[in-house]
Amino acid sequence: METALVIGGTRFIGRHVVEDLRDHGYDVTIFNRGNHDNPFADEDVTHIQGDRTDTTDLKTAALSAKPDLVVDCVAYKPGEVETAVEVFADVDAYVYISSGSAYGTEEIPKRENDTELCDCTPEQATDDSPESYGARKAEGDRIIAQAAEDGVNAMSVRPCIVYGPYDYTERLDYWLDRVEHHDRVLVPGDGTNIWHRAYAEDVASALRVVGEEGEAGEAYNVGDRRLVTLEEMLEVIAEAMDTEVEVVHAGERELAAAGLAPTDFILYREYPHVLDTAKLADLGWESTPVPEAMARTVAEHRESDRDGSEHDPGREAEERVLGVLDTI
């Protein structure tokens, strides 16, 4: 394959996808509405402006780009996936970004061919709320499987929580900012909770590898091959920042004293979320070592103006909890 069309392509995961494809010799075209700055405006990346929810725009992009590989970064509703597999039915490979949220059962680990997916009602299929996100992604996976039965070389990639440079969600930036500016960082629980994370560059390479080597109709989990707990993540961040941090644990009772709950802290999850990534590794995919991935993430964070403040439970409240803990 020589040509690639990335639907999306200018923000977080899509930006990494474009960079990875270019690094591997692809002639890349991006297709989006042009609502965000294009980091590839001065480079040899073709930009087609249009709305992916408009079938005519999508067909125009297909005819113009003539892609061998299509990577769909912004299919958020089942109807969008249905249209895409029809428009790109004749490409060498169509790869849909699904999500680990598509799994409807809590088990450890979650495996592509074993773990049950979320159901999706007609109402959820057209909803925009975060509550229906997993259901919508799961329905997209089912559409991919059906398209493969109809002869389309379509596949899914299911990332867990993604982190890395350019992350506009600022989920990790909150913790990066805490470690950078505070000696003591409050962590809910005992620090051992696990929410599997995936480095953005690895998600990008997974999408390419699946497009090149994957099997039609199959889904592939992607996440760091080494899982770290929330406390270990802060230690990795501190090492990347060449600093030290004291992690202070707080239970529900101590947090409640300041009007906080464990779920007020971003990237905290009570039940472990772990994806089995062996299926993807069997295709030849490899993940970046966590310390290396975090070092790159820290470097870009320091150059950005992101601080994760939208996820901040409030430093004053945290200080009250720390004060309570100091008296115990």
Rank of each mutant, 00 (worst) to 15 (best):
T60E: 03
D42E: 14
A61N: 03
T53H: 05
V70D: 01
A62I: 08
D42S: 12
D54C: 14
T53Q: 07
T60F: 03
D51C: 12
A84F: 07
P67G: 08
Q49V: 10
I48Q: 02
L63S: 15
E80I: 13
A41P: 02
V85D: 01
T83Y: 05
D51L: 11
K77D: 09
D72S: 13
D68N: 12
A41M: 07
C73D: 04
G79H: 04
Q49F: 01
V70W: 01
A75T: 05
L58D: 02
H47T: 15
E43D: 12
V81I: 10
F40A: 03
T53A: 08
T83M: 13
E43F: 06
D57F: 07
K59S: 08
G79T: 14
T55R: 15
V45G: 02
E80T: 10
E82H: 09
T46W: 00
D57Q: 06
D42H: 06
H47R: 15
D44E: 11
A75H: 03
V71I: 15
A84M: 14
L69D: 06
Y76V: 14
A61H: 00
G50R: 02
L63R: 12
R52Q: 05
D72R: 08
K66M: 11
D44V: 08
D72W: 14
E43N: 07
K59G: 09
V74L: 14
P78G: 09
L58K: 02
L69S: 10
A61Y: 01
D54H: 09
R52K: 10
G79K: 07
D54A: 11
D68G: 09
V74P: 00
V70K: 00
K77Q: 15
D42T: 06
T55Q: 13
H47G: 11
T60A: 14
L69M: 15
E82V: 12
A65V: 02
T56V: 11
V85T: 06
D68S: 07
G79Q: 07
L63K: 15
K77T: 13
A41F: 03
Y76N: 13
P67R: 11
Q49I: 08
K59E: 13
T56E: 12
A41V: 13
A62K: 05
D72K: 08
I48T: 03
S64T: 11
H47K: 15
E43V: 12
L69C: 14
E82K: 11
G79V: 15
V71L: 15
Y76E: 14
A84Q: 08
V81L: 04
V81W: 00
D42Y: 04
D57E: 08
K59H: 12
D68E: 11
G50W: 01
D44K: 06
V85R: 02
E82N: 14
D51N: 15
T46C: 06
G50H: 00
V85K: 03
T60G: 13
K77P: 06
P67V: 09
T83F: 06
C73W: 00
L58N: 01
P78T: 09
E82S: 14
V45I: 06
T83P: 03
T83H: 06
T53Y: 04
D57C: 10
E80P: 04
C73R: 05
K59P: 04
C73M: 11
I48F: 03
D57M: 09
D42R: 05
H47V: 11
G50I: 03
I48N: 01
T53D: 05
V74Q: 02
A61P: 00
A62L: 09
R52Y: 00
E80S: 10
D72P: 08
T56M: 06
